[in-house]
């Protein structure tokens, strides 16, 4: 084949090394692979303050407006399918009832917890602190693909809206995840169902604490995402249907306390090491996330209306 292409016989250095068509120069191939490896090493060794984060932020700043724009254009198109399936008034009714259902379920989930907490803590200090939290509303504008094996979404609020990393993200139904990275107009949220996610959880009825781990499975297509709960006190067995809420971290970062997470679906006990593992069904449908709220300190300066703990908009 090489005698058909006399020009291929002389390479740039003038030596007689024929290069088959379609094959790359070795130097370039090696340098590209090395570039990948260097990048991975930089990102991995850098850890929390990785030098790659600057590039990530830059790309985020450039792409977030585009993503938000595409999402805005796509909204009406996606709404068409719902419009075909049923009439306007019915869709509206279903949305309203679902919202009400979520609210009531949230109320029900925290009843045990609230009652126990009132008995445990004395006085006004706790009550004042635990009335509620201010929320910055945001919409999901990008969803990470399953091929990356990490469950993250992009929301359309960033530092301009008063966000910073390590803030709790909730929806009307319950806990969604936490903010891990922000740009000026967008933020990346790690969902609680991510395999890397660990949340402190409390069983509302018994006040026992434990850790909730994600399984990395989004739970669409008829299946629902699940969380595993490992209780610190191995002797107690949570009952099926018990509500689980967050028990919160110091200073409310990354998770604030008292946010409903899900209900106990089933309990597995291991005879060998006498531990209990409960499977939790989260309240939030992670396959259909849209409007979420980010918990911020009351009085945060923001580019949009902030929902205050008493339900007013500011």
């Amino acid at each position: 084949m090489t005698d058909l292409m006399p020009r291929e016989r002389l390479n740039r250095r003038g030596s007689l090394e024929p290069r088959a068509p379609g094959t790359p120069r070795r130097s370039r191939a090696v340098s590209l692979v090395l570039a990948c490896l260097v990048l991975m090493t930089l990102d991995l060794v850098g850890g929390e303050s990785s030098p790659v984060d600057a590039a990530r932020r830059l790309v985020g700043e450039a792409y977030a407006p585009v993503e938000a724009g595409v999402d805005a254009v796509l909204g009406p198109v996606l709404a068409v399918s719902g419009w075909f399936r049923t009439q306007d008034s019915l869709t509206e009714d279903v949305a309203r009832l679902e919202a009400e259902n979520d609210r009531l379920r949230g109320d029900l989930a925290t009843v045990d917890y609230e009652r126990n907490r009132l008995e445990e803590y004395d006085g006004l200090t706790a009550a004042a602190e635990q009335i509620g939290y201010a929320l910055v509303p945001a919409r999901v504008i990008g969803i990470g693909p399953a091929q990356t094996f990490s469950r993250t979404v992009t929301i359309d609020a960033g530092t301009d809206a008063g966000l910073r990393p390590d803030l709790t993200v909730v929806s009307a139904a319950g806990l969604v995840g936490r903010v891990i990275r922000v740009t000026s107009s967008s933020a990346t949220v790690l969902l609680v169902i991510d395999a890397d996610s660990t949340v402190g959880g409390r069983v509302g009825s018994s006040m026992k604490i434990g850790f909730l781990h994600g399984r990395g499975d989004l739970g669409d297509f008829g299946r629902t995402g699940r969380l595993d709960l490992e209780l610190v006190d191995q002797t107690t067995v949570p009952a099926r249907g018990d509500a689980v809420v967050t028990w919160g971290s110091e200073d409310g970062a990354p998770y604030v306390s008292g946010v409903p997470v899900g209900t106990v679906r089933s309990v597995y006990s291991s005879v060998r090491d006498s531990t209990q593992r409960a499977v939790i069904a989260p309240y939030v449908d992670f396959g259909a996330l849209d409007l979420v709220g980010v918990v911020v300190p009351s009085g945060t300066a923001s580019d949009r209306a902030v929902v205050e703990p008493d339900g007013t908009l500011r």
Partner: peptide, 18 residues
Amino acid sequence: DLVPPADHVAGRWALALL
């Protein structure tokens, strides 16, 4: 690797697509 919802070590998609 860098566009917003991504949260893995940068360079992994670059190597795979290369």
